[in-house]
Amino acid sequence: MTDMHPIQVTELSKQFPRKKRLGSVHAVSDISFNVKHGEIVGFIGHNGAGKTTTIKCILGLLKPSEGSISLWGKAPADSRVRKRLGYVPENPDYDNSFTPMEYMNMFASMRGLAGTQNDWKKLLGRVGLARWETTGIKQFSKGMKQRMSLAIALQSNPDLLVLDEPTGGLDPIARKEFREIILEENARGASVFLSSHILSDVETICHRAVILAGGRLVAENSMEKLLGEENLYRITVISRKDGKEVEEVIPEADLQTRIDSLRRDNIRIVRVEAAIKSLEEVFLTATGGGESQ
C-alpha cells in the first residue's frame, strides 16, 4: 500500500540545463521519501539544497528528470489529486487589484467549493486577517500575503497541505499561530509536508524530518530517532587543573555511578541537567556543518 501514501517520491532527480557547454545543474539527485497519512513531515535543508525544486516537482510545476512522484498513487497533474491539496508557496504574491475576499471567492469558485462569504470571513479571521477582508492586496506586507495564502490553502479542508517556507516573513507571534493552525489541521486528519528554514518550528510540530544537503537526501527519520531516543544528561564540574568548568554528557543509566565516582574523587559538581540534542545540531551534523554542496 506504499503507493497510496499522500506523497511518494521515488528516486527523484531534477536537472536544469545551463547555457551551451556548461552542462546542467543537478538541483536534486536520487531522493526517495514519503509522507504517510496523518503525518507532519519537516523538509529541511540549507539554501539551494533543492527543497523548493522537490516541492515544485510534487505539485507538477516541474517535470522530474528521473524518478517518479505520486500523490495517493496518482500523478500530480491528476485533477482528483489536486482537489485534495492545499499549497502555500514560498513568498506568495497575488494580483494587487483584488482584495482577500475577492480572491477567496474566486479560488472557491475555481475549485468548485460550496462555502459562503461568511465561511471565508471566518477563515480569514482564523489566519489573522479579520480586519483586512476588503483591503486591497497592494497594501499587504509579505507576512499578510502569507496569511492569505494559508487561508486559500485551507479553503477546501485539504487532505494534504504542502507548505513551502510558510513562516519565513512572520513575526514570532504569527509563527506560533501558524504552528497552531498546522497542528489543528493535522488533528482534523490532514497530512502536512512542511519545508522550513526555521528548525525550531520543524522540531516543535513535525513527526518526522527529511534533511537535504546539496540536492541529496542525507537523513530521514522520526523526530525521536533524529534527536536521540536515549535520555542523556550533561554534568558540569570544576576542573582541578585550571579551575574552569568542564562538561560531560552521559546516558541516564550511568548517571548515578558517575556522580558517585566524582564525589569520591572530591570533584566539585556545578550542575546536572538533561542534555537535549537540538534539531539544529542534528542538521549541522547531517549536512556537514551546513556547507553548501
Binding site: L85, D93, D95, F107, R111
Partner: peptide, 14 residues
C-alpha cells in the same frame, strides 16, 4: 515574474 502564477497552476487550475 510576480509569482502569482504558482498558486494558480499548482492547485485550482490546469
Amino acid at each position: 515574474e510576480t509569482r502569482t502564477l504558482m498558486p494558480l497552476v499548482a492547485v485550482p487550475l490546469s
